[in-house]
Design a protein around this nucleic acid. Structure first.
Length: 270
DNA sequence: ATATGCACCTGTGTGC
DNA sequence: TGCACACAGGTGCATA
């Protein structure tokens, strides 16, 4: 589900309430397909102090003070959620963490694409080195300069490639293309330098605006406090196939590109 | 090397 | 109410 703004929203909430806290209890409620259902995981997180919670691309990293981290990827439906102490686990709740300040956090995942695992910091660095630049902490001209290859690749496909730029997913790829007035079907090579600067500026802009609204709840996304994101109402194209463009009133077109639903205005986007 | 298709899962909405 | 099907925020792999 979540892209950079949603993961960042959750990161901030987890960090604010849990930085410096220690995990005093960890329970495996139900084993998932992708995350290790092992006693080793439980004993690996137990008694660990969370130094801070970080984000890289769409990954959440809980840094412990012993050189290891807990790495989480929410994929489509993963959730870290603050819950009340006596919450009875539901069908999709998989892990529960209890902290020394009394906070309870549940990890749930309906579709089970997500994962939570222990990872050593050196392995984490290796993983990070394969991920592209962070849009919110990289100069626009550097983002643009790196967005040139492979030349024949379609622009939206490149935006979704985490090794080209980190954290952009299906919603914000479509939104950034609309704001930049560029069709997602175009090839990288067709972009001028000015086009690339504009596209990257719009990527950054839309991500920041969405973070300010705590993300987009297109379907069932909720943040760590259980709230829905407010950016849905501000989307210009995503999920609006057939509806009038907010700029020119021409119906938004929906196509499939790279196997993903893709939305654009046939009038505003060239 | 890229593109496509599919696979991993469950749930929801739509149309019959 | 049931059923079949399409589709959903992400990635990774096998095959053209």
């Amino acid at each position: 589900m979540p892209e950079l703004p949603e993961v960042e929203t959750i990161r901030r909430q987890l960090h604010d309430r849990l930085a410096g806290r220690t995990i005093v209890r960890a329970e495996l409620l139900r084993s998932g397909r992708e995350f290790p259902a092992s006693d080793a995981f439980i004993s690996g997180v137990l008694e660990q102090q969370v130094v801070r919670v970080e984000r890289r691309a769409k990954l959440l990293v809980w840094r412990f003070n012993n050189g290891t981290s807990m790495l989480g990827h929410l994929k489509m439906t993963g959730k870290f959620l603050f819950v009340a102490k006596h919450t009875v686990p539901g069908k999709h709740d998989r892990l529960r963490f209890v902290f020394d300040n009394g906070e309870h956090v549940m990890w749930s995942d309906v579709r089970q694409f997500g994962y939570v695992k222990l990872i050593a910091n050196d392995e984490l660095e290796r993983l990070f080195s394969g991920i592209g630049p962070e849009p919110l902490s990289t100069p626009i001209d550097e983002l643009a300069a790196r967005f040139v290859r492979p030349k024949t690749r379609k622009i939206k496909t490149a935006l979704l490639d985490q090794s080209a730029i980190a954290g952009v997913g299906n919603i914000y790829a479509d939104e950034a293309c609309h704001r930049a007035g560029i069709r997602p079907t175009r090839r990288i090579a067709s972009l001028t330098r000015a086009d690339r600067i504009r596209l990257m500026s719009e990527v950054v802009q839309v991500l920041q605006e969405s973070i300010a609204q705590k993300g987009t709840s297109a379907n069932d996304y909720i943040d760590a406090t259980g709230e829905r994101g407010g950016f849905l109402a501000l989307l210009r194209v995503y999920g609006r196939g057939g509806e009038p463009c907010r700029t020119c009133s021409i119906p938004i077109k929906k196509i499939i590109l790279g196997g993903r639903g893709t939305h654009y205005c046939p009038n505003c986007q060239v």
